[in-house]
Amino acid sequence: SASLEDVKTAVLGLLVILQTKLYTLPASHATRVYEMLVSHIQLHYKHSYTLPIASSIRLQAFDFLLLLRADSLHRLGLPNKDGVVRFSPYCVCDYMEPERGSEKKTSGPLSPPTGPPGPAPAGPAVRLGSVPYSLLFRVLLQCLKQESDWKVLKLVLGRLPESLRYKVLIFTSPCSVDQLCSALCSMLSGPKTLERLRGAPEGF
Rank of each mutant, 00 (worst) to 15 (best):
V168W: 05
E162S: 08
V33S: 07
C143A: 08
L51H: 07
M187D: 01
M187N: 01
L12Y: 09
P79F: 05
L194H: 09
S28E: 15
G77A: 07
C175T: 05
K104N: 11
F204Y: 05
G118I: 14
A200D: 06
T114K: 14
W150K: 00
K151R: 15
A54S: 09
E147P: 00
K104R: 14
V152F: 02
R58I: 00
P113W: 14
S102F: 11
L110V: 14
T20S: 13
K105N: 15
C175V: 05
L78F: 12
E147C: 00
Q179L: 09
S56H: 11
G115R: 12
F171R: 09
L169I: 04
R69V: 04
E202K: 14
P79N: 05
P89T: 12
V168M: 08
P89S: 11
G203P: 07
P161L: 06
S111F: 11
Y34G: 02
L76I: 15
H44Y: 00
A200N: 08
E99S: 10
L136D: 01
V156M: 02
L157M: 05
S3N: 11
S48E: 14
P132D: 10
L160K: 00
S134W: 06
Q42S: 14
R165L: 06
P113V: 14
T193H: 08
P26Y: 04
P174E: 11
P161E: 09
L14P: 01
L188C: 13
L140Q: 02
K151E: 15
A54T: 06
E35V: 08
S173H: 04
R127C: 14
S189P: 04
E5D: 10
P117W: 15
Y90E: 04
L73A: 12
F171M: 12
R75D: 02
W150V: 04
I41M: 11
L197W: 06
A2M: 11
P113I: 15
S189Q: 12
A2R: 10
L22C: 05
V139G: 06
G199C: 11
L169R: 03
E162V: 14
L67Y: 13
T114R: 13
C91Q: 08
L110D: 12
L160E: 02
T50E: 10
G77P: 01
E97R: 09
H40N: 04
L194W: 13
S130N: 15
T9A: 10
V38H: 02
D82W: 09
P112Y: 09
